[in-house]
Simulated scan of single mutants.
Amino acid sequence: MRCTDIAEDFPVVDLDSDALEAARLLARNRLPGLVVTDANGAPTAILPASQVVRFLVPGYVQDDPSLAGVLSESMADHVADKLSGKTVRSLLPEDRPELAVVSFDDTIVEVAAVMARLRCPLAAVLRDGRLVGVITASRLLELALR
């Protein structure tokens, strides 16, 4: 089985997309992440949902998770405030990991190897440098467990 057989249409955002709208897209569709494109529409990064969550949690709580217990649940009410006015670019880490991309004619084993090596929940499928779809880890598992 090749990537062209299993790649799916998937929401894409660009680096300058609104961060709050990207987070809503992730939440509304329960996506593991989003492919981020540059101004030319070429994939440049994967924005995992976990990275958006990380952006929302204060650094001091990330450093010492025991402090999370002292934060009130009303902190969740301010999630939109933290993302408001930000772009997707600001959610991406400065030291971005290698982009999880595969070729349209790669096998599912090759896709699995890329995802495993990069610890990424999805891979962008390219043909002639253009995005033709996305393969998620859950789709890959579905096929592998048949």
Rank of each mutant, 00 (worst) to 15 (best):
V36A: 02
D63Q: 13
D106E: 13
E142H: 14
S103W: 09
F10E: 00
V61Y: 05
M75L: 12
D128Q: 12
N40M: 09
F55Y: 14
V102P: 11
A45N: 06
A27H: 09
L92D: 02
D9T: 15
V13P: 06
T87D: 02
P11N: 10
L26V: 03
V70C: 02
R54F: 02
L92W: 07
L143G: 11
K82H: 07
F104C: 05
S72C: 01
D95R: 13
I6G: 05
L71Q: 10
A80T: 08
L126T: 04
L34I: 05
F10Q: 01
T87P: 04
A123T: 04
D14V: 00
I46D: 03
A68M: 11
E21S: 09
E73N: 09
A7E: 11
T87G: 01
V109A: 13
V125Q: 13
A49Q: 07
R130V: 10
T107Q: 08
R139L: 14
T136H: 06
D128W: 01
L131C: 08
H78T: 11
M1R: 07
T44H: 03
V13S: 05
I135M: 04
D77W: 08
F104N: 10
V109I: 10
V114N: 03
V125G: 12
V134Q: 11
V102F: 10
V36R: 04
A68D: 02
V70K: 09
V12W: 11
A100D: 00
R24S: 03
E142L: 12
T44I: 14
L71T: 01
I6L: 15
A144V: 09
V70Q: 11
P11K: 10
P32G: 09
L20M: 08
A123R: 03
A137W: 05
C120D: 03
P58D: 06
P65Q: 08
L83T: 11
I6F: 15
D38E: 02
D105Q: 11
